[in-house]
């Protein structure tokens, strides 16, 4: 059993509770023990970095230090959290003076200083390696019954590769490996690692809806039954805002969107009530029918 400090991120805890619930249900089946982080803050989602860069760094190092105290690495289920935590980690690991100055601030407020020993990984990275796929195989998955799945990576789990580094950002294959291993078919398309627009969707909605159009229209044209994403922010842009994107781009997509653990959950046959598809805005009926769930 691999133990992780579990950092679901704000969206999975609030707007997209179905992601958190499915992850927690799946964890033991994937040989993972998820340890809660009750004093962890939001990672700032790039917004705090864009307003107060030093504060962003200090808050994220505080989170890393909490995991270090627990003696385990951090597991995330969100692209944006992964980037923010990994970036802060890289910054202080590569600059001893910077780490020292951040630690001074942490100690001043009674927080634990960070020693720089923790790694941050995403569930997709954990499960799409050979060992991860073997864990799935052990569960005897009933499979996806040839479901055509469009992988949608988004941006921040791939780029910048100097911070993320799990796979080639121009030829990612982790979702493809997972889809194939679970008995699905990959519906490939170019925009799978383009931006969903979510970071600016509240402030610049019309621009953001042009961005999500790329992946939604191309995955539809590639004949996908469903899209899957490792990021709850991408999920909101692709699912919750899909009808708006249709209106803005004068087209129809009708593209149901799965969170990564829901794709695994469908293949392993876990209870639909746990995955709570009613919380999605685009109906999942045709997907459930196709996999016989």
């Amino acid at each position: 059993m691999r133990r992780f400090a579990y950092y679901p991120g704000c969206i999975a805890e609030f707007s997209s509770k179905e992601l958190d619930a499915t992850t927690k249900h799946l964890a033991p089946m994937l040989d993972i023990e998820l340890l809660p982080m009750p004093a962890a803050t939001c990672c700032g989602a790039g917004d705090i970095a864009e307003a107060k860069p030093n504060l962003y760094l200090t808050l994220n190092v505080r989170i890393l230090s909490q995991a270090e105290e627990m003696g385990v690495d951090i597991l995330t289920i969100c692209n944006v959290c992964t980037l923010n935590l990994r970036r802060a980690n890289k910054m202080v690991k590569e600059d001893a003076r910077l780490l020292e100055s951040v630690n001074e601030e942490l100690v001043k407020v009674g927080a634990r200083p960070y020693e720089g020993t923790i790694d941050v990984t995403h569930l997709l990275w954990y499960i799409s390696t050979e060992e991860g796929l073997a864990l799935l195989e052990k569960q005897g998955p009933k499979g996806l019954n040839g479901l055509r799945v469009a992988p949608y990576y988004g941006c921040q789990l791939l780029r910048p590769s100097s911070v993320m580094g799990f796979e080639d950002p121009d030829k990612p294959q982790s979702l493809e490996r997972l889809i194939t291993a679970l008995g699905g078919e990959v519906a490939d398309y170019e925009a799978k690692s383009s931006c969903c627009g979510f970071p600016i969707i509240l402030a610049r909605e019309q621009v953001a809806l042009k961005e999500s159009h790329n992946a939604l229209s191309q995955s539809r044209d590639a004949g996908a039954d469903v899209m899957v994403t490792p990021c709850p922010l991408c999920h909101l842009a692709m699912d919750a805002y899909q009808r708006k994107a249709e209106a803005a781009n004068a087209t129809e997509y009708n593209m149901p969107v799965l969170h990564l653990p829901q794709l695994i959950g469908l293949a392993l046959g876990i209870d639909n009530k746990i995955m709570d598809f009613k919380r999605h805005l685009v109906p999942m009926d045709r997907v459930l029918e196709a996999v016989g769930a």
């Binding site: 704000c10 803050t41 939001c42 705090i48 808050l59 402030a203």
Partner: peptide, 19 residues
């Protein structure tokens, strides 16, 4: 609106620690 979006994160952070 973009600046206020970032500001809302700071307010959230101060009042609860999460978004």
């Amino acid at each position: 609106a973009g600046a206020r979006h970032a500001k809302a994160f700071l307010i959230s952070m101060r009042t609860g620690g999460k978004l």
